[in-house]
Design a protein around this nucleic acid. Sequence first.
DNA 1: CCAAAAGTAGACCGACTTGTCTACACGCAA
DNA 2: TTGCGTGTAGACAAGTCGGTCTACTTTTGG
Lengths: 205, 205
Amino acid sequence: MDKRTHIINTALTAFYQKGIHAVGINEILKESGVAKKTLYNHFVSKDELICACLEARDKRFNHWLNDRLKNCDTPFEIASALFGSLSIWIDNKAIELGDFNGCFFINTAAEFPHSDHPIAILCSAHKKAVLQLLFDKLSQTTQFKSKSEKAKQLAQLLMTLKEGMICQARVMHSSNQLLQDPLLLRQLVQSYIPKPLQDADFSVS
Amino acid sequence: MDKRTHIINTALTAFYQKGIHAVGINEILKESGVAKKTLYNHFVSKDELICACLEARDKRFNHWLNDRLKNCDTPFEIASALFGSLSIWIDNKAIELGDFNGCFFINTAAEFPHSDHPIAILCSAHKKAVLQLLFDKLSQTTQFKSKSEKAKQLAQLLMTLKEGMICQARVMHSSNQLLQDPLLLRQLVQSYIPKPLQDADFSVS
DNA sequence: CCAAAAGTAGACCGACTTGTCTACACGCAA
DNA sequence: TTGCGTGTAGACAAGTCGGTCTACTTTTGG
């Protein structure tokens, strides 16, 4: 494997599991079996390595989520697939994402409070990308075609619930099973869908 | 002021604004104008100081939230007051809580991934206390009297939304204005209230 | 085939970390 | 007065941090 990629993968795993400040360069070197000079040949500093890890994680997570939502055609299906996927991740059944330890971007942002720091900017960008993904998915449904305002609002709500679910699972070690309840989910989604289309959504899903 | 309290207040502000690992003992000493021996006379280690800060923050936050919810008599009022209060906090208008920098407990938990670490346990305990506070409040309403199962579920949902709202505000620098919308909020709350009581809730709030 | 590039191993630097310890000052109570 | 508790000021220990550098080896491409 590419040395650079190997270093990123090793560093990402360590950073995600233990936190950025808790993992030193030397630990990454030992774990990856790479010389210090090699690392600093690929990355000018630890910060740059962190940024590369964030980009790699962003790519991996978005790909995973996009894949999980690819067969969803209604808002309800999207919401259901979203929370189902999160639950799978939390239960350590999403091997692509590694052992669950909360959201890497929320965790990392907590360690870099300055909002104009490159690392904080990448964390923010990831969240915006996920929100955009949800919005795009919802916009493609027949229920939300040319109702982008409503799609935007539901995407925002799903996003907030997603973040909350991940944080709760990380801190309290208990996920919100409620969001797996089809009845509640249907009611949540329903409130955003224009009246004439609600039945259509019901019959399909 | 009590030396010990003074140290805790100084440390708490620094830890909350910059993150735990980013703040050294010496910085706290300089800021508080206290000698190193004095600090180590009150706290055996940095970890113990961190724990004292978490306890102080837990007390302060719970008191603040409890105060903000004290005049709420219906589930809708509780939800409305909750998200309104969070919005005030995020907009830096809750002086008791200091400059908003996300949830101190989520941030801190991100820096201490081992779930059996005393610090992580305190973070988890805080979240459980807040959830309990919401549950108690909801249980006291006429709509949820002796419907503790439903109250539990709504408390759980509100908690998830709260965590999500705080995380989004922290990472994306944009709060979810949606949760301030009375219409949406009413629909959210409504789905948990047993049918015969819904109108009662509506007429009161 | 040979030079350039990219790798390894690890000593080393200065700055920083938590935590200990000495030396000294002040206030209070017996 | 004496002695104790609590405070200050800061040197110091022992270790870690990110990052640089030397010396040497391996890989690779023209």
